[in-house]
């Protein structure tokens, strides 16, 4: 047991100040994020904003039972957030949302007619309106009792991969200027959306808690990911997405970028994002085993970024991580594969 107060240890995660042991948690949320939607009768197929049950219905179907089950996650905090099953950012830019009960998932598909992102209107955007309604309701129900936070918001490359489908990849070669323009627009929308949420997220014990990871910070935190960029070269990442990722990091006091262990080809560039505070690496079942990842993980720590490591980590993995990685600025998050 650490001698430090829990929130002080969380604060030190971001700053890299000394701690006697890393933050550690075992997620109890599971992978079945669609369950509350199924329980509320959302059918298979296309999902429009109007089809989503009103936020108060989710209170009884999801938030209250979750809280009653003590969702504390080791050192980490459980955060009430808009339902993470929804592909929020993709929907906000105009992608179609498709529900698949058998997959326990929602997917974002390219719209038949691509909206002009230059004409994005946050005030009139129905999906953003729904996200805000959830955040406001959560703040009203739980106030300062439970941390309220950012939900899963996929980053610019993921937004564009959904928006353009397979064309996303070929357009980078065929029409690079178009993709650069769209990437800039997605970045601006991403920042605008999260800033709009922070207008309604109350401070929790003087700070904010990262919605997915459950780590408290003294200021607003941005958690983002670029999974689609994991399928492109380092040069293309630099050309199309590095600038946007740097802009997101610069727009919030604390930031955490999620990467996959099987696609660390951009790591050097990610570490060069000056205002990025933390890097999350998920240990992919098909990627390199943890012992082979250690040099990259150490590189992240040497670059002065906090390291959030997550995956289906065994006890041996955890021991290895604790022995080879510095505890300062380290969080080990175990997510058991079902």
């Amino acid at each position: 047991m650490s001698s430090l107060d829990r929130l002080e240890r969380h604060r030190r995660f971001w700053t890299g100040e000394p701690v006697d042991q890393p933050l550690q948690g075992v997620s109890r949320e599971g992978a079945f994020f669609l369950q509350p939607f199924v329980a509320l009768g959302v059918p298979d197929g296309d999902l429009r904003v109007a089809d989503v049950p009103a936020p108060p219905l989710f209170r009884a179907a999801y938030y209250e039972p979750t809280l009653a089950g003590d969702p504390t996650d080791g050192d980490l905090l459980w955060v009430a957030k808009p339902p993470r099953a929804l592909p929020w950012m993709e929907a906000i830019i105009g992608c179609c949302v498709e529900v698949a009960h058998c997959a326990q998932a929602m997917s974002a598909l390219a719209p038949g007619v691509l909206p002009d992102l230059d004409r994005f209107d946050a005030e009139a955007n129905a999906w953003l309106g729904l996200m805000t309604a959830f955040t406001r309701e959560l703040a009203e129900w739980y106030g300062l009792r439970v941390p309220i936070g950012q939900t899963l918001m996929r980053g610019p490359s993921d937004m564009l991969a959904a928006f353009l489908g397979q064309g996303f990849y070929t357009e980078m070669i065929d029409h690079p200027d178009r993709i650069k323009r769209l990437a800039r627009q997605c970045t601006q929308i991403w920042i605008q959306v999260l800033k709009s949420q922070y207008q309604h997220i109350p401070r929790y014990r003087g700070g904010y808690v990262s919605g997915i990871m459950g780590i408290w910070a003294p200021g607003p935190v941005a958690v983002y990911q670029e999974d689609a960029a994991g399928f492109i070269s380092r040069q293309m990442y630099q050309e199309f997405f590095w600038e946007g990722d740097a802009a997101i990091a610069a727009a919030f006091e604390y930031s955490l970028l999620h990467l996959h262990s099987a696609a660390l080809q951009h790591l050097e560039l990610v570490l060069a994002i000056p205002q990025l505070t933390a890097v999350n690496v998920v240990v992919d079942p098909r990627g390199p085993a943890l012992p082979d990842l250690i040099p990259d993980l150490q590189r992240i720590q040497r670059a002065g970024k906090a390291l959030h490591l997550h995956g289906d980590l065994s006890e041996a993995d955890l021991q290895l991580a604790r022995s080879r990685l510095a505890p300062a600025g380290l969080c080990l998050w175990v997510v058991r594969e079902k």
């Binding site: 397979q166 990849y169 070929t170 980078m172 070669i173 065929d174 399928f231 492109i232 070269s233 293309m236 080809q265």
Partner: peptide, 14 residues
């Protein structure tokens, strides 16, 4: 060997 990624592979296949 990670000289090519998905975009290069897709345009080659096309």
């Amino acid at each position: 060997t990670m000289e090519y990624f998905v975009p290069e592979m897709l345009v080659a296949a096309r």
